[in-house]
Amino acid sequence: MRIGLRTGGALAIQATDLTLAYQQQPVLWDVDLEVPQGVLMAIVGPNGAGKTTLLRAVLGLLQPAAGEVLVFGQPYADQRRRVAYVPQRGSVDWDFPTTALDIVTMGTYGGLGWVRRPGTSERTRAAAALAQVGMESYADRQISQLSGGQQQRIFLARALVQDADVYLMDEPFQGVDATTERAIVELLRALRADGKTVVAVHHDLQTVTEYFDEVTLLNVRRIAGGPVDRVFTEENLRRTYGGRVAGIGGRAVGNDLEPSS
């Protein structure tokens, strides 16, 4: 229904000249991010490269010193409902007294407005999203009793409930088991098949070509960006991580590489 409203060829996300600093230390420097519609894009770079910061700046959670973010050609503030966010799993307290279904229901809060409580229809949608990530039998489970992979799926379900057009995910594969990783990849592909756009911070260089269509290489500055087969080269990785990156053919792992100072 919303697809008809889309502005012709506008990029899903277009960030220009994003610059952000913590106490004079630049975290993002003049970064452009261009995400075409309907692709799966990985944001890749060493620790401290500003990947999470970039996502948070796009979402307006951080105020950049300079730069602009457009979502489908319009300011983010007007397009908020079309963007869903999957934060890092470790960013919240999983001992919070609530259930898996309740967390997923939080994805419907944006459409409810003030004061109104979620009702049957919201909970039905949340239950459907839980089923989409294969967690329907855990609906009433206290969230601290879920495994890391299950908690990640709960967060994904919460984003699915938002029925957005763009999904921004911060390390969705972090600390999940192989089963969950496969399930998440399937989910991303299903989203792409529906014409949705996904941007994910990703750490595992081995799987970039397999999972994603596009990649942005980031190390405070944007090193390179575009289709994986063109951009994800040994030369570009070396420029991103500094030093040597051995065997991009499949053995390089980003976690082990430190940025050059």
């Binding site: 979402l59 307006g60 959670l61 609530t98 967390i103 939080m106 809060y109 003030w114 919460r158």
Partner: peptide, 22 residues
């Protein structure tokens, strides 16, 4: 009671709350 849902969301995940426009 009136802002129960907002307070709950703020207490659990303030960043997510902000992305919802709260």
């Amino acid at each position: 009671l009136a802002l129960w849902k907002e307070f709950k969301l703020l207490s659990f995940d303030p960043d997510f709350a902000a992305t919802l426009g709260i």
